[in-house]
Every structure is written in C-alpha cells, then in structure tokens.
Amino acid sequence: MAGVTYGTIYAIVAIGFNIIYNATGIINFAQGEFVMLGGMTAVTLSRFVPLPVAILGAVVLTTIVGAVIEIVFIRWLHRPSVLRMVIITIGISILIREIALHVWGESVRSLPYFTGTSVTSIRLGGVYISPQVLWAVGVGAVAVALLSAFFNLTMLGRQMRACSANRDAARLCGINAGNMVTLSFMISAAIGAIGGCVVCPITYVHYDSGTPLAIKGFTVAILGGLGNSTAAVGAGMILGILESFSIWVLPAAYKEAISIAILLLILFVRPSGIFGSAEAARLKEF
C-alpha cells in the first residue's frame, strides 16, 4: 500500500507541473520543493498550533512562496527560452533547498498520523490499510476533483485555460495574462504543500526530499502526457506501485532508478505520453 501513497504524491507533483506548464509552457523544476516546504512548515507549526491549523498555515505560506517566486524570478522575463527557464527553475529549487537546510537543518521530520497511530490499520476488503494512506488518497482525489471543477466551471479557471490556449487572444478579451501566471504558481504551490502534508507522516520529510519528488513527478507528468492532469493520476499510481513491487525482484537500491528508466523510455518511444493522443496534442499545441 506504500505504493499508493507514493503514487498519490507523484500524481500531485505531476499535477503541479501540469498547471504551470499549461499556463506558461514552463517546466517548474522547483515543484518538489513546494512539497518539501509544505511538509516542513507544517511540522514546525504543529509544535505551536493544532494540526489542522498547522497544515492550513503551511499551505498558505507555501502559496505565498509560489507567488513570490513568480513575481521575483519569472514575471519580468520577456519570452524566455526553454533552456533559460530550466536553469532558472533549477536555480530556484537549489535556493529553496539551501534556505531549508539553513532553517531546519538536516534532520528528518514527520507529522503525526492524522487519525490513529503508525500501527493502526483499517480492514478494507481483505487487506489492512493504514488510515493515513486513506487520508492521502482521499485528499488527493478531492484536490483533483476541485481543481477540475475550478478549471472547467469557474470564470477564473476558464481565464487560465484561455491564457494557456492563446495568450494574445486572452489579453484581447481583457484578461491579465501576467496575473494568471502568478495564479498558476500559487495553485501549484498550494497543491504541492497539501500533498506534502498528507504524505509526510508516511514518507517523512527533510530539506532535500523535494528533488527526488520533482524527478518522479516529472516522470509521471511525461508518462501521462504533459498538461494532462487526469492521466497524471493514473500514471502516478502506476509508478508508485511499480516501485513498491520492484523491491521483490530488484535490490532496493535500484528502486530510484526505475523512474529514470521509465522517463528515458517514454521520451524515446512515446513523447506524447501513454494516455496522450496525437489529436489532443495537436489541439493543445495549436
């Protein structure tokens, strides 16, 4: 069942990638750091305030960090090249990691289980599941549903999609495209932080735990087809479960190599992703 937990966080990171990618065409390699920041901040806050308040505070703070990053590093760039964006976002990720090391040190931290303890388990259809896994999956599912409703049913969500479909045409409708990009960073940061909070009782968190998540999340985003958040959920589960089964056939040390292998394989064989159709890709690119 650990596979499902990891799958959830991979999917959440991938969705974070997708939201920013759709709004800007940028792959934000600091996406994993949002997850780390969410977890770390919640752990720290939970020493002073009740857990739900700590989580809420962590999400709000990380969202603000997302907005600041966009306003400070991204907004003033005029049609930057892809390479430049890759370097800038990797730079941001290193910066955040260094600050986190400075603030929190190297120790590994964790939040308490939301319900029960690490040994509590719930019987569900013959298998025993930790309630925290249900929390992670449940929160992940709710987040995906809310995001989908936001993008498809609200005017603000439609504005963001319009900007990603055709930035100039969106501006001609009166939409402030720059603000939509900031908003995409805020939503990505928020969903990353939420994910970081719900999985950290199981996966733990330390200053450096964002980077591997970014790689896994990127693999999942590519696997599902960049920009496609529904497919990212399926792809996240596939990677999480593959990884957790791999320790039966491969030495545990190779677990980390799986996602890289999948990533390379997909990039070579099917860059549009396993769920992506050529038709959708064309419509998207336009």
């Binding site: 999609r161 055709n166 100039d168 045409a169 419509l283 998207k284």
Partner: peptide, 10 residues
C-alpha cells in the same frame, strides 16, 4: 485578430 485565434481546446 487575423487568423481567428479562437481558444481551440475550449
């Protein structure tokens, strides 16, 4: 605009 520029995926 020239070339219509509708929001194609919407």
């Amino acid at each position: 605009p020239e070339g219509r520029q509708v929001f194609a995926p919407m």
